[in-house]
Amino acid sequence: MPVSLSDKSQLLTICLLCALVWLCPVSVYADEFAVNIKKAEMTLRGNSYVLSADIDYQLSDSAKDALQNGIPLFWTVQVKVQQRRAYLWNKKLLDKEIRYRIQYHALLNIYRVRNESSGAVGNFSTLSAALHTMSMIRNMPIMDKADITQDAHYIAGMKVSFDRDELPLPLRPIAYINPQWYLSSDWYLWSLKK
């Protein structure tokens, strides 16, 4: 039985409405939780470049509930530096990761933040204090001055990625489909000053 043109347009309208209804919850939650890089820069100190950055962590209710139940949450801060070239592709000079773990300990009533890369640990009485510590990177040595030449142009980038694969196995499928677990930032790019 052939389908008329009006039936096709009605079907298309229904599909579009379903897509809009499916996307609405994402836009409603988008302002309530996110991870954003507010500012990042690399400056020359002596013979090495150091990274300073401000990151804003706004956790969703699902992430806060998981923390309160003792589930650790992991984020990876990726830092990249590339030399821009006119031919082929950009040359990668640096690809560094800084990994953070935050966990609530109910018996002690504290939040513990661990820099998995350096081993530094901090204990905090509130979640906001723990997130504040993760949100500030100050004067972290990243690369040597000798790696940079004066006649080239360099681009630096930074991204914060939430590691859903570190969640307990029963929670992972939910974390991949529920927008409350989309707790990664976009790339923040800037030109490296020599």
Score class of each variant (00 low, 15 high):
92 K>N: 15
191 S>L: 06
15 C>A: 14
115 N>V: 06
117 S>M: 08
42 M>T: 10
141 P>Y: 01
58 Q>E: 09
175 A>S: 14
138 R>E: 10
181 W>V: 00
34 A>W: 10
111 Y>T: 02
30 A>L: 06
13 T>V: 02
139 N>W: 02
38 K>S: 13
38 K>A: 13
176 Y>Q: 14
71 I>Y: 01
56 D>H: 06
101 R>K: 15
53 A>M: 07
125 S>P: 05
185 S>K: 06
93 L>P: 00
173 P>G: 06
52 S>M: 00
139 N>T: 05
34 A>S: 11
50 V>Y: 00
89 W>R: 08
44 L>T: 11
116 E>G: 05
177 I>Y: 13
188 Y>M: 02
56 D>R: 07
102 I>P: 09
180 Q>D: 11
73 L>H: 10
46 G>N: 04
110 I>G: 00
158 M>Y: 03
70 G>D: 08
126 T>S: 14
149 T>V: 11
4 S>C: 15
175 A>K: 09
191 S>M: 14
170 P>A: 05
170 P>R: 02
100 Y>D: 15
8 K>R: 13
88 L>T: 11
102 I>Q: 05
78 Q>Y: 05
101 R>F: 01
67 L>G: 14
61 D>R: 12
121 V>W: 09
45 R>T: 08
167 L>P: 08
181 W>H: 08
168 P>S: 03
